[in-house]
Amino acid sequence: MNENFKKALFDYLLWMGDTTLVLGHRISEWCGHGPILEEDIALTNIALDLLGQARMYLTYAGEVEGKGRTEDDLAYLRDVMDYKNSLLVEQPNGDFAFTIVRQFLFTAFSYHLQDALLSSSDERIRSIAEKAIKEVTYHLRHSSDWVTRLGDGTEESHQKVQDALNEAWMFTDDLFAMLPGDKLLMDEKIIPDFKIIRRKWNDTIKGVIEGAALKLPTETYMMNGGREAKHTEHLGYILADMQFLQRAYPGAKW
């Protein structure tokens, strides 16, 4: 494996690992605070699935890098400027409507990406996708159902979910950002072209949003930079919380 290729694969895996890890951490913050018991359980279940996916990506990233870093080293011992997650997932939970909309926009993307990765030429990425798509299918159904219920619900729930959509929209471009190195991975048929994923994503979210009597936002200002580690201020607080133990007691083991 030449160095450029290795770096490209490592960057790609880190992005997937960091994105699922940060979103998993975000929604785990709902544990004990869900609006109803079933929803509390649903969100924590989804958090667990995302954490499981993050572990597979980060473990593989560490192996590709070849410097002996484990999933835990990558999760706990990197700071903000080394995290590559998409900006959408680090945004604070806000109200339940925002949490659901953030989840919906990400999950529709993840669903189409994993679906494409089922035919990746990289065996490891393919097997992660085989496992993940089964879980993501349930997650997409969960958030789509909520967008429908809230959008088509009371005047207040409709307004809240529409506001959430408008607010989250500027982070959607960043989900589809590709780095120059991704070209190498695309040439080897390891990852798909995100332009195709974006088209599918658009069809999926449009169907649900319009079906819920909501409007697709027309705001055009887009914030980018997650994969280049240019983050919003919120990521630092998540890491401070998540990494506290390993920072205070280096090398502590469970």
């Binding site: 079933e38 929803e39 359980i41 279940n45 667990l48 699935d49 349930y138 159904r141 969960h142």
Partner: peptide
């Protein structure tokens, strides 16, 4: 169905 998600990842309520 009450919820897709139950007491463990593999169960629904």
């Amino acid at each position: 169905m009450v919820s897709f998600f139950g007491s463990t990842p593999c169960k629904a309520l």
